[in-house]
Computed example of a mutant assay.
Amino acid sequence: MKPVRSLARAMLSGIFVVSGYRNFMNPGRLVPAAKPITDRVTPMLQSANPRIPTDTETLIRANAAVQVGAGLMLATGRLTRPAALVLAGTLVPTTLAGHPFWNTDDPMARNNNQVHFLKNLGLFGGLLLAAVDTEGKPGLRWRTGHRIGHSRRSVQRAVRTARREARIAARAAGTARRLPG
């Protein structure tokens, strides 16, 4: 199953690497569409850290760089689960800025934006699947629960052993008192 996972990850990440590179090299073409979204995000970014650049072109480049980096990580199988989550996070503002079909009056443009919006929604779903894929190995939740159960059983065994040894010691002490001597 490993070749299928590797191929699927490479295929899923391809759009992020290619479009991320294009957007990084030429962010100006996206500024008009991204400006309404970045204007909403700017106050939150400035309150978090006033030194963060908040101009639209810089935010587009940052998003694009993250998409290229996380896309390459996903494609190469390095930190795939966090990379998939990061890509899913970058997809939200990209989709909202790039395909707001609800704001479009032209039926052709509305249909086109709706198709691309749904395509991105499908990519988001694929990224969520990649983010939870444990490659057939037990996940952290199962391992934690299993470890807790194992520890609980170990403690219960230790308590039973201590009780049994205490009973044996009590019997031995009682027998030693009755012996003449």
Rank of each mutant, 00 (worst) to 15 (best):
G126D: 03
P53F: 11
A64K: 04
G28H: 12
Q67G: 02
A158Q: 14
V159Y: 03
A34G: 05
L123E: 03
A75E: 11
L118Q: 05
G14E: 04
T42H: 03
I60W: 01
M25T: 14
M44A: 15
H150N: 12
A97D: 05
L45H: 07
V18I: 15
A169G: 09
V31H: 01
P93E: 06
N26F: 11
R22Q: 14
A130H: 08
A8G: 02
V66A: 13
I37Q: 06
R9S: 13
S154E: 13
P138F: 10
A48H: 10
G149D: 10
D55Y: 09
I60L: 04
A130T: 02
H116K: 13
P180V: 03
G136T: 03
I168W: 10
L118N: 05
G69H: 11
G125C: 10
E165K: 09
H116C: 08
V86L: 03
F16V: 05
G98M: 14
F16M: 13
P93F: 09
T175S: 06
T80F: 03
R29D: 05
D106I: 06
A158M: 12
R143C: 05
A166V: 08
R51Y: 14
E165W: 14
S6F: 07
V159K: 06
L129P: 05
P107R: 00
N23A: 12
T80A: 14
V4K: 07
P36R: 00
T38C: 01
R167Y: 15
A170Q: 14
L12F: 11
N23W: 10
I60G: 01
R110W: 04
V31C: 03
G89D: 07
L140Q: 13
P138T: 10
A62G: 09
G89K: 02
L123C: 05
T54R: 02
R163C: 12
G174Q: 04
L118S: 08
M1S: 11
N26C: 06
N63I: 04
N120W: 03
N49T: 03
A64N: 01
A34M: 15
P100R: 00
R147K: 13
N26G: 06
A170C: 08
T144G: 12
R143P: 02
L118R: 04
P180F: 05
K2Q: 09
R160A: 15
R164K: 12
P32I: 00
T38G: 02
R171E: 15
L128E: 07
L12R: 13
G125N: 10
R167V: 14
N112K: 15
K2A: 07
S19Y: 13
R5I: 06
F24D: 10
N63F: 01
V92H: 01
V17A: 00
R61S: 03
R160F: 11
R157V: 07
G77M: 01
L121A: 09
G125S: 08
R141M: 04
A170E: 15
K35N: 06
A48E: 08
R61W: 02
M1F: 09
W142N: 04
L140K: 12
H99I: 03
G181E: 02
T161L: 15
T54M: 08
G69S: 14
V17S: 05
A162L: 12
L87T: 02
L30E: 00
W142L: 10
P32Q: 00
A166D: 09
N49G: 10
A88G: 08
